[in-house]
């Protein structure tokens, strides 16, 4: 008699996805920077979860999240960073022109600029400032020291400030409109280093 087929996963995963799927998807989108990439990231995490089913003993969601975060931190997908940066800056400039609210522009821009950070810094920023994990929790999730997390967060924020400044300059060529001038002013105010 042959042994019974061993399913790659039980109903637990389906139950988890039914109950917490949207939250997981949000986390994936946050880490990846877009919905399409978020979907790919989440699927990659699910695949890894299915492959490592023997190692999952408790807390399926925690395990899946850990995979998700680590995939993101490890730069699960390599891209042409230069091209993407250029595209982001350009699209950001055009998007800003069409946006009626400068502060909304800036939030949107920051999210886009976030995508330019190295994967680990980006993941740390998302976990610390969006998922509201403490440095200790983030360190546990990513399997590194608390100091490394603090350092990555600090460098990430600093880099974001730099990128935002560059974004502001790129978006404000000579002969800018009054609204752009307002935006620049607001951006400069918001992105000042805390004293």
């Amino acid at each position: 008699m042959r042994p019974q087929a061993d399913q790659p996963d039980g109903p637990d995963l389906d139950r988890l996805l039914a109950e917490r799927g949207d939250q997981l998807m949000r986390a994936a989108v946050a880490l990846a920077g877009s919905r399409a990439d978020g979907e790919d990231l989440l699927q990659a995490a699910l695949e890894r979860l299915l492959r490592s089913r023997h190692r999952v003993e408790t807390d399926l969601e925690g395990y899946l999240r850990r995979i998700l975060y680590n995939l993101a931190a490890d730069g699960w997908r390599r891209r042409a960073v230069g091209e993407r940066r250029l595209r982001l800056i350009r699209s950001e400039s055009s998007a800003a022109d069409a946006s009626p609210a400068p502060a909304v522009d800036l939030r949107d821009a920051l999210v886009r600029l976030l995508a330019q950070l190295p994967p680990r810094q980006r993941t740390v920023i998302v976990l610390r400032f969006w998922a509201q994990l403490s440095a200790v929790e983030t360190a546990q999730m990513l399997g590194c020291s608390e100091g490394a997390i603090k350092s990555a967060a600090s460098r990430g924020l600093a880099r974001l400030r730099e990128l935002a400044t560059q974004w502001r300059e790129d978006a404000n060529p000579p002969g800018r409109s009054p609204r752009e001038a307002d935006r620049q002013s607001l951006t400069g105010q918001l992105l000042e280093e805390p004293r």
Binding site: A30, L114, V126, W130
Partner: peptide
């Protein structure tokens, strides 16, 4: 950043 990601 938090608000931006929330929006995204």
């Amino acid at each position: 950043i938090h608000d931006g990601i929330d929006q995204l």
